[in-house]
Simulated assay, not measured.
Amino acid sequence: MAGNSFGTLYKLTSFGESHGKAVGGVIEGVLPGTVIDEEYVQSELDRRRPGQSAITTPRDEKDRVEFLSGIFEGKATGTPIGFVIWNKDQRSKDYGNIKEVYRPSHADYTYQSKYGIRDYRGGGRSSARETIARVVAGSIAKLMLKQWGITINAYTSKVGNLKLEKSYKELDLNQTEENIVRCPDQEMAAKMIEYIDQVRRDKDSVGGVISCVVGQVPVGLGEPVFSKLHAMLGSAMLSINAVKGFEYGLGFDATHLMGSQHNDEFYMDGDRVRTRTNRSGGIQGGISNGEDIYFNVAFKPIATVLKEQTTVNRSGEEIKSTTKGRHDPCVLPRAVPIVEAMTAMVLIDAILMNKMYQ
């Protein structure tokens, strides 16, 4: 199977399945001497782990990371950093009834067709449990980004039809972690939580949008042809399970404007070139211009619902099937740190690419 690595100079290769012994990875490109704050890495994993609230899956995994290599006396040595997170609370018996069944909108059929074999327990390699490795690599990337003062803040901005109408500049993003849905507007958060809980009781699922803001971005990140910064961010986001769309800046709303309305006019702020507006989302010509980068990531309702649905089995028979197991009614709260992690990996990779020119 190809496609298990992400990044060019800062690179993650992940391994593991949802119901296997462990999930882990190898990170390359960590600058020697980088302080590896293992408590911080664990805190980021805690934001992603299951069982953290009433609106997430009750699977009880502590997701404790164990580093195997590349760190000495609390600092990166510059060699590959290997790590593992052991799975502790699998209930593989919950998936026995789908061994021969293709669950609607899952990867069951495509995996079976492509490889001739699949791990039906929790989706195997196609499970979002793989994103544990991304959060570890992303948290170390965040530690590296601190020296440039770059900040990354993602938050839930839409659940179903419940949408934050305020721009990120009108919000206090420090409030994001003050509620279990990770929405910085407490009034809207309460509505979202109530709605997700109702969806859970109805044995269904719901999607939405995670917004992300990157501040203090230096000018010049991104390569202007096939590796445009927004293209790399889009690739990173679209690789996350359940993601169906990505837009940066005004995104699709820009199609309603004329060029004269959409253009960001330049002005001088002391000796710094700035833009009066930021409809471009901090990226022009595929290269960061020093303004905030902001983008939206659309997540579908997860395919696993605890309702009877029509499908087919491996014998080609049309049947009725009901999925068992423990699942999130909405992935957004746990996906916020994943979006931040993938953003951090893209940015540190772009910074390391820029250092090649220096």
Rank of each mutant, 00 (worst) to 15 (best):
F6K: 04
E17T: 15
K21W: 00
E28Q: 08
L31W: 03
S53L: 06
P58D: 15
E61F: 08
D63P: 02
F67T: 00
I71L: 01
F72C: 07
T79W: 07
P80D: 02
I85Y: 01
N97H: 14
V101N: 01
P104M: 13
S105A: 14
H106K: 00
S113L: 11
Y115L: 15
D119I: 12
G124A: 12
R125G: 04
S126I: 01
S127N: 10
R134K: 11
V135I: 14
V135C: 08
A137K: 08
I140F: 07
Q147C: 10
Q147T: 10
Y155T: 01
Y155C: 06
T156Y: 05
V159R: 07
K163H: 14
S167K: 14
Y168L: 02
E170R: 03
D172A: 14
D172Q: 12
Q175V: 08
E178A: 13
M188E: 12
I193T: 08
Q198V: 05
R201A: 09
D202P: 07
K203Y: 11
K203E: 13
K203I: 06
C212S: 03
V213T: 08
V219T: 03
G222M: 04
G222P: 08
V225S: 15
V225Q: 14
F226P: 06
F226A: 05
M237Y: 05
I240V: 11
A242G: 05
T255E: 05
S260M: 07
D264P: 07
D264N: 05
D264Y: 01
G270P: 08
R274M: 11
T275R: 15
N278M: 03
G281M: 09
G281H: 07
Q284V: 03
G285Q: 01
S288N: 09
E291R: 05
V331A: 08
L332G: 04
I338Q: 06
T343A: 01
V346T: 09
M353A: 08
